[in-house]
Nucleic acid binder design. Structure first.
Lengths: 399, 399
DNA sequence: ATTATTTAATACGAGGTGCAAATTAAATTC
DNA sequence: GAATTTAATTTGCACCTCGTATTAAATAAT
């Protein structure tokens, strides 16, 4: 139980106000007061402090209401885009995507490095990441000193609280303090987060879950990840661990347990084709899924079969997740969606079959085919969230 | 985002102090201050208010420290057992168990009604429950007016926030506002809660999770339930729903999905034996599991087979739950534990096989064979928790 | 027996917080 | 140009927590 003092109180309300301003675009103080259920007095005090800190800006136009309203016009407030800058990154096995965003989360520059880093030693990956961050920052016309925070989203089991990578398919080592490593390299505070969590927050900030307080996201990439939003916050599991869906067990086969990753992981679907020459090259470049789609269009029976099996496994898993969390919406993201109709149809069918009758209709399935930028933007949102939460310079009273 | 005001602040700290007093037996103010990280001043103010409200008592002995300490002796504080009384109940298909507890959660009286209420209409069940509550209260030498709150724990999908029963194996109807029904009948505030949640809180208050802030409990009864404790609070899922593990899908069989309930539910294990005469009677009386155990001892191959299959299914499911939540401890409760070694061994084996290597050792499996009283006591804890949280009479300042 | 010492608990004042009521500000309408 | 209307701030108050000083209640020393 965390101890409550005035500071915490203020921090909570500040976050609430700041987030409301970010979400509802230019917004007046009265409307903030209505939405947050804080008194206008308090809203005035907090927005005053936010203005002092330069986190928000006033704008004297833009009141949407009927032009012909009596009375003093509302002053609209909006997040100051230039209050801070962060870097968000998605690190995957076959590519890295970096974005620099402003305080509002707008992308200022992006950079894709199509490099395969399968199970490289930490120093190699750190080099590449450092290089990517630096180049992307320069592309945005900035210097690294202008960047307040960096967030790296990567697959695997990440301990957000400490910045440790417990295990990740892209690292050879396990149990790496990657946050510390990158923080010193970049001399900028660096957060390490599961890629699934990053895009979950991304959807809550910018995407298909803006209107929700609770939802579940399932990422279908090389690794199968899960993000849970609960009460407007990321649910990070007991110990601050991320979830790794691929480890879920679907049943007992003749030679031991059958894990989801063996049915629906990228390599599971592509695996059978690895020997194929034209294919190995594509996979190596991280373009496997796109090629698969072409082959599916060309009626490659083996692949269609793999896609259908994968869809089935994922559909069952989603049903189980819904059984546990009963979220109003489930968002599916990731490269495996590119498998197209055979995959999606069997997924939908399996889900419909597996969802318990009592929960039928409580969860809506949404497919999202955002590009990698959006993942990186989600990572940026994680970094921004911590800035939004932090008390900033002026915690104290009005001077 | 909930709006933070001084009242919330006080409520949080009050709960923190009161819970510390409950947990750490008679405890001095200084020690409370250390544990809660509140200043001694604040602790004094809060305990003063709690004393005014009669929720705690002072005791001038019992300081555990070395007898020969200088200085003013500490005044020990403890929860006033008589500050309130609640009724907790476990409603199962074959029996109802009621307990009356004091404000500390001590059982004052208990009552077991060995009545089978399979799929009865709501009026019948409500009658029985009302009768049970009233009798148990009388047994404790009390009147219903002395009871501050009632909590009914029952199987199925319960919406705690509204008190609605979405679906339950013991009701014929679905979507019942049982909380409202019983509140009027008893003219006492009545909470309806999933039985799994009730015993989860029970273990956090009195049982095998007293020392933990996070844990997962799995209940193996007629229905398979799940309780998740997260940050000292029950995690009730997105919409305040309870979880129903039995609906989880284990895989795809020849004739559709295979649900956990079909492998490990009480009726799944006993089902094959239902035709057996000596058996049907026992099941009808809710003594099925006990008889099963006898038969297992007598080497009934069919039953041992069923138990092993059930253990396997549950073991896999637990591994999946651990993959998702990574709790430091998993507590297993429920009548199915009475199946004994064949069941438990296959459960343990399946779990060991299914738990992903990276999570090996993070969760400890604990088996708990508490009696039904403990479930009811857990329900009482749910009721007490709400009393502990509520601001009581004196929210205001010291008078 | 009396005084010094030690530790526990409370009083008091300061600083921070949110809210209601009163006040000021800035527009439109008459 | 005055009245009206709505937005935002100022003022005053009740509440919270905390640090420091003070009081309370025991043991140890004289």
């Amino acid at each position: 139980m965390k101890t409550a003092d005035p500071e915490l109180m203020r921090a909570m309300n500040r976050l609430s106000v700041l987030d409301t301003i970010r979400r509802r675009g230019p917004i007046s103080r009265v409307e903030i007061s209505e939405r947050t259920e804080l008194s206008t007095t308090t809203v005035s005090a907090i927005t005053g402090s936010l203005l002092d800190d330069g986190l928000i800006l006033t704008r004297h136009e833009g009141d949407i209401r009927n032009e012909t309203v009596r009375g003093r016009p509302r002053v609209m407030l909006e997040v100051n885009p230039d209050a801070a800058r962060v870097v968000g990154a998605k690190i995957a096995a076959s590519r890295m995507v970096f974005v620099v965003t402003n305080f509002r989360g707008d992308v200022l520059s992006k950079l894709t490095l199509p490099i395969r880093i399968d199970r490289q030693p930490i120093a190699v990956i750190a080099d590449l990441v450092e290089d990517g961050v630096r180049r992307c920052v320069v592309d945005a016309g900035l210097s690294l000193e202008d960047v307040d925070s960096v967030c790296l989203g990567l697959p695997g089991v990440i301990e957000h609280r400490t910045g440790h990578i417990r295990s990740s398919p892209i690292f050879r080592e396990i149990n790496i303090d990657f946050a510390a490593e990158m923080s010193t390299r970049l001399s900028t505070p660096t957060i390490v987060e599961s890629d699934a969590h990053a895009i979950t927050l991304g959807h809550h900030w910018f995407g298909k879950a803006r209107d929700l307080q609770d939802m579940v996201l399932i990422s279908l990439e090389q690794t199968l990840g899960l993000g849970v939003l609960h009460g407007n916050r990321l649910f990070r599991g007991a110990g601050g661990l991320s979830h790794n869906l691929g480890d879920l067990v679907l049943g007992m086969g003749p030679q031991g347990v059958i894990r989801l990753s063996s049915q629906a992981g990228e390599s599971a679907i592509l695996g059978e084709q690895q020997t194929d020459g034209r294919f190995a090259e594509a996979v190596r470049l991280g373009r496997g899924m796109t090629h698969v789609q072409a082959l599916i269009k060309a009626d490659d029976d083996r692949l269609i079969g793999a896609a259908v099996r994968a869809g089935e496994a994922v559909g069952l898993t989603i049903a189980n997740i819904v059984t546990l969390f009963a979220p109003p919406r489930v968002i599916l993201v990731g490269s495996s969606l590119a498998l197209g109709e055979p995959f999606l149809n069997s997924l939908r069918d399996a889900y419909a079959l597996a969802i318990p009758p009592s929960l039928k209709g409580v969860s809506e399935l949404v497919f999202d085919d955002s590009t990698d930028d959006f993942w990186a933007q989600g990572a940026a949102a994680v970094a921004l969230y911590e800035l939004y939460e932090s008390p900033w310079s002026t915690t104290g009273p009005a001077l």
